[in-house]
Nucleic acid binder design. Structure first.
Lengths: 224, 224
DNA sequence: GCAAAAGTGTTTGGGATACACCCATGC
DNA sequence: GCATGGGTGTATCCCAAACACTTTTGC
């Protein structure tokens, strides 16, 4: 391939949309930008991807540096979301951003006022087009839950059916019928009973279940 | 953001997986590589994305230059597929490739022995990991047909139900029951009858239909 | 005993599947 | 009249949706 001018690549950046459940609500990890542009606005964590580093490696390094979150251990699932062309992002005038989305539980970012999880239903104003990216990631997540076992990434190793249903409700954004949910979910054969019960408060204890597998699988038929 | 070393971006490339039906078979557009690496191997059309040009603009320019295919007019649908990190692709040792997939009909590339459509069921050996990319694009296409009206992009403005069914069969890779197909598809209300009939050969003429809309829409329920 | 969450079945409607014959035309 | 593809209907099954009461526990 020949060019009349030397080839110069656009800036490459990586960003992450990291979700977890907090108090039965879907939350996303944000940082407050320390620099221009969008100084002091909340934004998705991310940064520059230099030559010699794959996008996943760069993302892992950057998320660790900026938030303290370790992708390999804190997240139980990650996938590429989309690649955005952005024109205003970089002083050089042109950047391409590869975005990933990941799911986990009990993620504790570094203690810092500029790093926080926000409920997706009450996001602050976000820098760039990050509000749209979060929306897109949420849609992808909803669709992922409906045809895979991805919900495992949000739950502890053992969990009650009420907790499972609550995870679906938090992510789908609407309530589900308890009897139909249990019938339908159990018929998928993704989970099995344990011998343990969970007792909390003045009511009947709940059976604890666990997933047969902690890796992503497609469902035989779609779920809600 | 500060770096101790100057920021150098990886090479950015764009590639396209362009599908159309030829003789009731799903075909993909390939070019024979004129240069190393993989000189003389067949490959997906693509090229370098320089700073200042969005990925879609670069792809449009490159596909036009290398194959004569004009994305804006020859394709009736295009979407981003995935972004691949590649290590061996570029002499500089690290490249990121943003891939797109597009659908059309009656696409006629420039006349050149090094540019051709191949049936996906009989691909030649492909350069890089392009065989996997084609496979991934095909899976995406199958899934797209099952929850959207994307099939419109493969069909002429008016078409018979037999042609419609044949398009689904070619892409899904298996046969469908004629009566059930018609009942099910018509119940989606995506198409309507025209007053025209198609007559070919010594048999009853077939009713011609057309799509209500030529833009992508989600189906109320999934189809296959 | 009472408050609070866990757990459990049946009925109904609609879409999915399986399946075979008549119709309109050109030659 | 015959070969060729176009066009049509019914019966069955399974899943989805709607819906309310009993059980077990802590206090």
């Amino acid at each position: 391939m020949k060019y009349t001018t030397p080839y110069i690549a656009p800036t490459l950046t990586v960003d992450a949309v990291i979700f977890q459940l907090i108090d039965s609500a879907l939350n996303v990890l944000l940082i407050r930008r320390p620099n221009e542009p969008f100084k002091d606005s909340w934004a998705l964590p991310g940064g520059y991807n230099p030559v010699g580093e794959t996008t996943v490696d760069a993302l892992t390094r950057i998320i660790k540096e900026k938030t303290g979150v370790v992708i390999d251990t804190d997240l139980r699932y990650i996938e590429q979301l989309y690649t955005f062309d952005t024109v205003a992002r970089d002083p050089r005038g042109h950047a391409v951003s590869v975005t990933y989305t990941g799911y986990g539980r009990e993620i504790t970012p570094a203690t810092d006022d500029a790093i926080a999880f926000f409920p997706v239903s009450r996001l602050p104003d976000l820098a760039y087009d990050h509000a749209e990216i979060v929306k897109y990631a949420h849609e992808r997540l909803i669709s992922k839950l409906s045809y895979t076992n991805a919900v495992f990434a949000f739950l502890p190793p053992t969990f009650t059916l009420a907790e499972l249903q609550s995870a679906y409700e938090a992510i789908f954004g609407h309530e589900l019928d308890k009897r139909n949910f249990r019938k339908k979910f159990l018929s998928l054969n993704l989970i099995h009973e344990t011998t343990e019960m969970k007792r909390t408060g003045a009511h009947r204890p709940a059976r604890l279940y666990e997933f047969n597998t902690q890796t992503l699988e497609s469902l035989p038929r779609s779920f809600d």
